[in-house]
Design a protein around this nucleic acid. Structure first.
Lengths: 214, 214
DNA sequence: GACTCGGGTTACCGCTAGTAACATCGCACC
DNA sequence: GGTGCGATGTTACTAGCGGTAACCCGAGTC
């Protein structure tokens, strides 16, 4: 009996937690990452201390929020990464999946990338250096693993795969961030250009003639 | 007389401003990006309102601070980028310059990349989306310009150069960030691995045999 | 000597994250 | 059927933040 009762309570608590997260989501999407705990509590129809009972502190809430979105994005990326097509096509479709996601929900994306974990008093939020962008790290590790599984890189394969994983993710992220702000071209163009870069087109291109000097 | 007097005052003000920036620098390097205006004022031996008279608001101070470091870093990168050697060597030395800089002064680097412009009351700091990482943007544009000047990319050269500029900078940044945290290999190894990636080694590598499934 | 004017300070506002203390409802247990 | 107890919720508070208004004082000028 004790156990069933416990699970009963836990279920209720979990549902509560999910409701709170959804309210927080709405507020963060509306107000950006600097949404206040007061605002979130109000949106959920309750008051602050309840939020703190559930999530510890603001960092905890934001981490829980970020985890949901990160998991979702990673799942769709994994699908693109696992498709049984040739490598170039896989790379392009993964890039496109990521870009489509940030294009569809830029607010979510900004929240994940720039948590802006302000906090003034006390400040025992999460550490700046270590948790600043967990999404990038997770994507990098994930990609590293796929690369190492799938590509034959010789003796130093593990190190190379990890460097490349993080490097490619960073490339995708920075280019996406810039593209989202300026929209200088279509998504397909961007995908193709980035894939070209990874395919060594920079190295293969010739020097420009008639350039400045020399 | 009026003009000389004016320049006299302006000089004094500029010197003051530089002193304040140096004090701010010390505090930010010690306390991280969430250093408070009070702390900075105290370090400079004065009180808050003076800071606000000089820099407007916290965003202004941080922007001024960031500009100094950004300019310095960009100058050394430009030197590496302009060296009259072959492309691969130039790419490697630019990567190495950047990595050496963030390795030598990780606190500065963290400040530049993760401004964490918290702020609670009033919050009219600088806008999150637009100024979140000006260093990355500036580096991306700079690199794009160099690429377009130096490399022959055919008809779409301008677009390609910009995409690649931001992409490569992002790759460098993310890989550097990860490397700085985990130190999984030497700087030279990292530089070589990244250059290999840009040189198309990922595309050239064969599929792994005996991998999972298939 | 009155008068402005730039550099400086004190004292405050409104806001934030986070907490302590009190109220209340449901429910098992004797 | 009363009774303790634990979860849920509230009000009222603290400490500290960014930012500002008001005053203050010494140096130069007529």
């Amino acid at each position: 009996m004790d156990t069933t009762q416990r699970t009963e309570q836990q279920r209720s608590a979990d549902r509560r937690r999910r409701e709170l997260l959804e309210a927080a989501d709405r507020v963060v999407l509306r107000d950006g990452p600097q949404a206040s705990m007061n605002a979130i509590a109000a949106e959920a129809g309750i008051t602050k201390p309840i939020l703190y009972r559930h999530f510890g502190d603001k960092g905890g809430l934001y981490a829980a929020l970020a985890k949901r979105h990160t998991d979702a994005l990673l799942a769709s990326l994994r699908a693109a990464l696992d498709a049984p097509v040739d490598r170039r096509e896989r790379v392009e479709s993964t890039l496109d999946t990521y870009l489509a996601a940030i294009e569809a929900r830029p607010q979510v994306y900004r929240f994940l990338m720039h948590p802006a974990e302000g906090s003034t008093g006390g400040d025992q939020g999460f550490d700046v250096g270590k948790h600043s962008a967990p999404l990038l790290r997770r994507m990098g590790e994930e990609l590293a693993q796929v690369i190492e599984e799938r590509v034959d890189l010789g003796p130093e394969s593990q190190r190379l795969a990890r460097v490349w994983g993080h490097g490619i993710v960073g490339m995708m992220h920075a280019a996406g961030d810039w593209w989202l702000g300026e929209r200088p071209c279509s998504r397909a163009d961007l995908v193709r250009s980035l894939a070209d870069l990874l395919w060594g087109r920079l190295a293969a291109a010739g020097d420009r003639v008639g350039g400045p000097g020399f």
